[in-house]
Amino acid sequence: MATNERKDITEITVFSNGPLKVSGNFKLTGSNLKLIETGNEIYLCRCGGSANKPFCDGTHKKIGINDKNV
């Protein structure tokens, strides 16, 4: 499918041993629903070790992720 046909669709991409990429139209909030960021593209921490949570800072490369079943 051509990329231009799906530009309105929000996508979440899981990277093996890496972050979640979110692209498209989204609203990121905290537990308290306070706005952190709105779309276009972000990389979210999936390893639990980022010093810049909720965003990825590359720490997964050092500490790894339990991704044997991903």
């Binding site: 979110v22 989204f26 609203k27 990121l28 909030t29 905290g30 537990s31 949570k53």
Partner: peptide, 11 residues
């Protein structure tokens, strides 16, 4: 895709 996707970071 009417509304933005809601992503909530739970503490």
């Amino acid at each position: 895709q009417d509304e933005p996707l809601k992503i909530r970071v739970m503490k």
